[in-house]
Every structure is written in C-alpha cells, then in structure tokens.
C-alpha cells in the first residue's frame, strides 16, 4: 500500500508501514458500525472458505488412499490432535475441536495475509485479544469446574518454603493474568512487525540505487514471514494446550 504513493512523490522517502492495517468498509462510506462489512469481514470470510476448502471439500471422497488435499487435511488433524494429546493430556481431547478451530483460523489468516495487497486480520489486537481472552476464560472456567477451589492450588507453590509461598502466589497470580496479554500481543505483534518491516523495505525501493538491495531484503523477509506465520499459529495453539493442562491438572 505504501508503494502506491511513491510514483507520485518525487522528493523524499515515503513510509506508510501501518497503512496496510487500516480497516475500511467494503462498500464505501466512512462509518464503521459493529455490523458493517469491512475488509476484516472479507478476509475472515476467505479464511473460512479456505478452511472449508481444505477440511471439507478436500476430504469429500473419504479415500483410504488420500488425495493431496486430503492428506494435507489429515496432516493438520494429526498435528493438532497429537499436540493436544501430548501437551494437555488425554482428557483434553474433548477440547480438540475448539483448539483445532483456533489453529486453523490463525494459520489461514496468517497465510492469507501474506498475499500481496491483502489484509491480515491477525495483525489487529482487537482480533487476537478476543482469541486470547476466549482461551483465558475457557481455561479459568474449566479449571474451576473441574477442580473447584483446588484450582487455586495453581498459585500456591507447595514445593517452596512456607515463607516464600505468599510472595510466589502473588507472582503466579500476576503471571496468570498477564497470560492473555502476552498471548495476544505475541501473535499480533509478530505478524504486524513482519508486515511493517516489509513495507519499510518497500519504501526504500524508491531510491534507484538501493532498490535491488530492497528487493532482496523483501524476499528474505517474506521467507521469514512464511515461517513466522506458521510458527506463531503453532505457538498460540501449543500455549493454549499448556494453559489447558494447567486447568485440568493444576497440581503445581
């Protein structure tokens, strides 16, 4: 988006790394009500379409010997299933569809955001904070429903000396409530930082001498962003599993 402005401007470099994150109504107008279809809506819908294409259309033949799309779907299923089973334990399997939803949404939102001129929904704190708060609320509710007041044992480190325990309890409590903050800012920050850096390099391309370096740097950053897009989805999912394990087995 920043590159659009360069042709017109002759003097000085133009950097608008944040313009790509602007939310615009799809059908004109300036007012964004809570129901207005915006580019957020469009790219979330595309993510839904991608998920359906992979997980439903791709597996429609139910082949014992899978086609390419079906084996990718099965790979994603096996990947998340094994993660839930290994990290959160066998009794967390009933949360598997929920975790799978988070993973598929984030992974597709991240990858769709890497398409040039697209909009990255996961770069917005509004989106990731909701995702992280959903996880936080789920974990807290599950923890109290499963263990009752025993869930508070998570904050009472029984292996520490008695005098230290209240202090540790306060630290644990703070770290527990910081979880959704770091959980959400990690995802949005990584995605936003990568995209912004690519735009900054694109801004340097306005100088003819620097432009080859700029193109090489954009290519390298793009490769890194492909990696980050997957790893951040993986990290978000695995942290959800870790938090869920705390809720199901709070013994510290």
């Amino acid at each position: 988006m920043a590159s659009e402005a360069h042709g017109a401007e002759s003097g000085g470099l133009e950097f608008h790394p944040m313009d790509q994150f602007i939310i615009k109504p799809l059908f004109g107008g300036d007012i964004i009500n809570w129901y207005t279809p915006t580019n957020v809506t469009l790219w979330m819908a595309l993510a839904v379409v991608a998920v359906i294409a992979l997980m439903v259309v791709g597996t429609r033949r139910r082949a014992v010997v899978p086609s390419r799309s079906q084996s990718i779907g099965e790979l994603a299923y096996g990947f998340v299933y094994k993660m839930v089973e290994d990290v959160a334990g066998k009794d967390a399997i009933k949360f598997f569809p929920y975790i799978m939803t988070l993973f598929m949404f984030i992974v597709f939102a991240n990858f769709l955001g890497l398409i040039p001129m697209s909009f990255t929904t996961t770069s917005h704190f509004g989106v990731t904070v909701v995702l992280a708060l959903l996880v936080f609320l789920t974990v807290t509710v599950v923890g109290f429903v499963k263990n009752g007041m025993g869930f508070l044992g998570l904050f009472w480190v029984s292996s520490a000396p008695l005098a230290l325990r209240p202090i540790l309890a306060i630290i644990e409590l703070i770290s527990y409530f910081v979880r959704p903050v770091s959980h959400s800012i990690r995802l949005a920050g990584n995605v936003m930082a990568g995209h912004a850096v690519i735009k900054v390099f694109a801004g340097f391309a306005a100088i003819a001498v620097v432009s080859p370096v700029s193109v090489v740097a954009i290519t390298a950053m793009y490769g890194l962003e492909v990696l980050v897009a997957f790893i951040q989805a993986y990290v978000f999912t695995i942290l959800t599993c870790v938090y869920l394990k705390d809720a199901l087995h709070p013994s510290h």
Binding site: T36, M44, A45, V51, M55, L102, F105
Partner: peptide, 19 residues
C-alpha cells in the same frame, strides 16, 4: 466492536464446520 463481531461469527462458523 466490528472486528470482534465478525471474528466471533468466523470462529463459530469454523467451529461448527470442523466439529
């Protein structure tokens, strides 16, 4: 508000399709 609204719809749709 707009983002949260559409995000929740997206998540619910994906959840039901998947589960």
């Amino acid at each position: 508000g707009n983002q949260i609204f559409w995000l929740l719809i997206t998540l619910v749709v994906i959840y039901f399709v998947l589960s």
